[in-house]
Computed example of a mutant assay.
Amino acid sequence: MNAFLTGVIFLVAFTATGKSIDCVSCSSTNGTDCSGEVTTCAEDQTFCQTARTELKKDGVASNQVYKYCGGDEEPHWIYREESLTTFFQLEVENCETDKCNEKPAQLTPRVNTPNGVKCMNCFKDYSADCNSEETIECTGDMNKCLFVSGNFCNNGTAFYACALRHCTNIASADLHPRYDEVDTGNIQKIEISEGIKDA
């Protein structure tokens, strides 16, 4: 499951539209910030972008940061998901002046307050589905339930099928960072549901 969660960072980069600017280009797969060379972006790239992830599994955090030229129309977006043992956040920021992504990468703090929504909590290797009597109480802006299945788990040598269900903050499947992989077949299904609200 770690490979799935950390792998989504690669999907946010390298699409673009507009005039050229100078941006910092760097990456760190084990840190909260990076510094690197200044790159003159292609003419159709109008923004400098910073993408940062945080994965907390069983209380242990790991981080990735990518800074690059881009052209995403959305100026700022955050994706979050949480199970009983794992929390993942991806945040992308755009800016429009030379070297504006040089500043330290930030993550918007999450809100840990329960929001009254509960979701099924399960994860299953080598399966297209998972079900459980176990539930998770969602917090903050994570007020929807997520189901994902496909070849996104990795055993160190190859990807294989697995499935998960837990809380997320996105309102529809097309907002998931790996939604484009539904077309390629790597992801079989992404579903967003309302979940179980407390009476």
Rank of each mutant, 00 (worst) to 15 (best):
L84Q: 14
H76T: 11
I78M: 07
T17G: 13
D141V: 09
S62W: 00
T32K: 12
K19A: 14
R178D: 14
G150Q: 01
D198A: 11
Y68S: 12
Q89R: 05
M142C: 08
R80G: 04
G116Q: 06
C145T: 07
I190N: 05
N169I: 02
G156H: 03
C23S: 13
T6K: 07
K118D: 09
G70N: 06
A13S: 15
I9V: 10
P114R: 08
P177D: 08
N131T: 15
P177C: 06
E96R: 14
E54V: 10
F147C: 07
P177V: 10
L84V: 13
A173W: 03
C162D: 00
V148Y: 01
M1T: 07
E54M: 11
P75F: 12
H166Q: 13
V60I: 08
K67C: 01
G70E: 04
N169T: 02
C23Q: 10
C41Y: 01
N186Y: 14
D183W: 07
D58F: 08
I192T: 07
L107R: 03
N63C: 00
I170G: 06
A16L: 10
I9D: 01
C162L: 01
T85C: 02
E194T: 15
Y68V: 10
E43G: 14
D180V: 13
H76R: 10
S28M: 03
N121W: 07
A161D: 14
N30I: 03
C69T: 10
E93A: 11
F152I: 11
T184Y: 08
C167R: 02
D22R: 15
A128D: 12
A16Y: 09
V38M: 11
N30Y: 04
G71W: 11
T39D: 12
C145M: 02
V65F: 06
A128N: 10
D183C: 04
R178I: 13
F152P: 00
V8G: 10
Y179D: 13
N101C: 07
V92H: 10
A161C: 03
A163W: 05
N143F: 09
L84R: 14
E73L: 12
E73Y: 12
Q64G: 04
G18P: 08
N63G: 00
E91H: 09
T135L: 10
S28Y: 07
E181S: 11
Y160W: 05
R80F: 02
S27G: 11
E134L: 11
G71N: 11
F88W: 02
S20F: 11
D183V: 11
E181Y: 15
G185A: 12
C145P: 03
T53F: 00
C95H: 02
A42N: 07
M142G: 08
